[in-house]
């Protein structure tokens, strides 16, 4: 298992919204849901519009499942898995993310 990569401070997170971090050359969208005290990380690339914009989408839930809506054409992606709700054959990568002592860290796959 690869190591955790330090990204930013918790204060850089946007409550109920997202930010984008450059992690090992990848664009990673990190979302913060204060109501669930949870952070999530997905690829920033929107497979539908082919633009790096998912971090600028709105977040919430569909049937209790946490999601982000692409700001471009409004498809919804699961915040745990990156799978698209409207078309499950499409997904964006999901990454592990954690908060430790006020810092946000992301783990990239091998």
């Amino acid at each position: 298992m690869s190591s955790w990569i330090d990204v930013c401070s918790v204060d850089d997170l946007q409550p109920d919204s997202g930010i984008c971090a450059l992690v090992g050359g990848r664009q990673v969208a990190i979302f913060f849901l204060p109501r669930r005290q949870a952070v999530y990380a997905l690829g920033n690339f929107d497979p539908f519009s082919r633009a790096n914009v998912l971090s600028r989408g709105m977040i919430g839930d569909i049937g209790g499942e946490p999601m982000v809506a692409s700001p471009m054409y409004k498809q919804h992606f699961h915040l745990h898995t990156g799978v698209c709700f409207e078309d499950p054959s499409v997904a964006t990568p999901a990454y592990r993310v954690r908060i430790d002592r006020g810092r946000v860290a992301v783990q990239l796959p091998e």
Binding site: Q14, P15, D16, S17, S49, A51, N52, V53, R56, G57, M58, I59, P71, M72
Partner: peptide, 19 residues
């Protein structure tokens, strides 16, 4: 309020096809 806005309102500008 900020989380209530879609990207256009969040950044006070209209997103185009390439972001």
């Amino acid at each position: 309020h900020i989380g209530l806005q879609d990207t256009n309102d969040t950044f006070l500008a209209n997103m185009q096809k390439d972001g």
